[in-house]
C-alpha cells in the first residue's frame, strides 16, 4: 500500500514541483525579493476612492500571487495626507525597502502648503503611476438642474449659502471649487469632509448642493439616479458619460484637472527594490482586472515609472504651486 502510494504520488509531486517552479520562475529571475510583509500605506481614509483602489490593487497582487510577501494596507488619512507623508519620511533601515504608498495629488499640495513639515516629495521613490482619475461636477436630481447654465443660475442665486462638499482642505476638490468660483463668478462655500464616500453621501442626502466627486465615488448614486453629472473636468468626454459635456466644450478653458493614482516608495529605497515594485505594479497594471477597473471607473492615463514618473511629478508640482498661489493658499 505504502509503495503504491509512493509510486502514485511521485508524478503528482513532480507536476506540483514543476508547476511551482514555473510560477516562481519570473520571480526568481529578479535579484531582489521582499523578505517581510510590505507596508502598503494609503494616504486617505477608509472607503474613499484611494482606499478602494488600494485594496483592489492588493487583491490583484494576492489573486495572481504576484508577490511572495503580502501587502498590508494601513490607512493614514490625517492632515490631508501629512500623516502618511511624515510616516513615509521616517521609515528606517530595511523597512525602506518594504514600505510603499498609494498617493494622490495631496502628495504635491500638502507639502507646498505646510513647508514646516520639511517634506520634499522629489526625494520619494517613483514606483508606478497606475492611472489618472477624472472629476465631474455633480448635483442632486431633485434640484432640477440639468446643465451648467442652470447650475450657475442656482448657485448665483444662493450666493455663499451654496454648499460644495469635498474631501479635505486645499486638496483636489477645493481647487476645483475655486476653478468654478473663478470661471463663473460664483461664491460657493466649501465644506471639507474626511473621504470621497462621505462627500457622496452628503449630496445624496441633500446636505450639500454640489460635489466634484470622482466617477468611482459617485457611481453608485449615479446608477440609482440620485445624482446627476453636469460637466467633466477633462479635455475629452468620458466614455462612461458620453452625454456629459466637458468644460472645454462649454467655452471654459483651463479647467482640465487630473488626479494621479500612483504608488511611491519610501525615500531612500534601494534601486533593486524600486525595480522590483515597478515590475510588480506593471503586472498589476496589465492585468485584465485592472484594465476593466480603469474602464468602469473612467480612469485614464498610461503606466509611468522611474524617471518619467519623476518628471511628471516635477511638472505637476509646479502647476499646483501656481494654482495654490492663485487661490491664495500659499
Amino acid at each position: 500500500m505504502k509503495e503504491l502510494l509512493g509510486i502514485r504520488s511521485k508524478p503528482v509531486l513532480c507536476t506540483l514541483l514543476v508547476s511551482m517552479s514555473m510560477l516562481l520562475a519570473p520571480l526568481a529571475a529578479q535579484a531582489w525579493e521582499p523578505n517581510k510583509p510590505i507596508d502598503f500605506v494609503i494616504m486617505a481614509g477608509k472607503g474613499g476612492g484611494a482606499d478602494k483602489m488600494a485594496r483592489f490593487m492588493q487583491s490583484i497582487v494576492e489573486k495572481h500571487k504576484l508577490s511572495s510577501k503580502p501587502l498590508i494596507p494601513i490607512n493614514k488619512p490625517g492632515g490631508s495626507g501629512a500623516e502618511a507623508l511624515i510616516y513615509m519620511k521616517q521609515v528606517k533601515g530595511s523597512n525602506r525597502d518594504h514600505t510603499i504608498m498609494v498617493t494622490l495629488n495631496s502628495f504635491y499640495t500638502t507639502p507646498l502648503r505646510q513647508p514646516d513639515l520639511h517634506i520634499d516629495v522629489l526625494k520619494f521613490t517613483p514606483v508606478a503611476r497606475m492611472a489618472e482619475d477624472t472629476f465631474l461636477l455633480w448635483v442632486h436630481k431633485d434640484s432640477g438642474i440639468k446643465n451648467v447654465d442652470d447650475f450657475v443660475k442656482a448657485a448665483k442665486a444662493k450666493g455663499n449659502d451654496w454648499i460644495m462638499a469635498g474631501t479635505g482642505k486645499a486638496q483636489e476638490d477645493q481647487l476645483l471649487t475655486e476653478f468654478l468660483n473663478k470661471a463663473y463668478g460664483l461664491n460657493m462655500r466649501y465644506v471639507p469632509f474626511k473621504g470621497g464616500g462621505d462627500v457622496a453621501k452628503q449630496l445624496a442626502g441633500k446636505h450639500a448642493d454640489s460635489t466634484v466627486n470622482n466617477p468611482s465615488e459617485a457611481i453608485g448614486f449615479y446608477q440609482a439616479g440620485t445624482v446627476v453629472p453636469l460637466a467633466a473636468f477633462t479635455p475629452k468626454r468620458l466614455a462612461l458619460f458620453p452625454d456629459v459635456p466637458t468644460f472645454d466644450e462649454l467655452g471654459k478653458t483651463g479647467m482640465d484637472y487630473f488626479m494621479q493614482r500612483s504608488v511611491v516608495g519610501a525615500p531612500g529605497m534601494s534601486k533593486k527594490a524600486e525595480e522590483y515594485y515597478a515590475a510588480l505594479f506593471k503586472k498589476v497594471y496589465d492585468s485584465a482586472e485592472w484594465q476593466k477597473y480603469m474602464k468602469d471607473k473612467a480612469l485614464q492615463g498610461d503606466f509611468l515609472g522611474g524617471k518619467p514618473l519623476m518628471e511628471y511629478w516635477k511638472k505637476e508640482r509646479e502647476s499646483h504651486r501656481k494654482i495654490l498661489k492663485e487661490i491664495g493658499e500659499i
Binding site: K52, R55, F56, G220, Q223, A224
Partner: peptide
C-alpha cells in the same frame, strides 16, 4: 458607505469580488 471600519473593509472586498455596493 461603510457604517464602521470593519464594513469599510467588507466594502473593499465586494469591489474585489466584482460587486458594486450601492443602491
Amino acid at each position: 458607505i461603510p457604517g464602521s471600519p470593519t464594513t469599510a473593509i467588507l466594502l473593499g472586498g465586494m469591489i474585489i469580488w466584482g460587486l458594486e455596493p450601492g443602491p
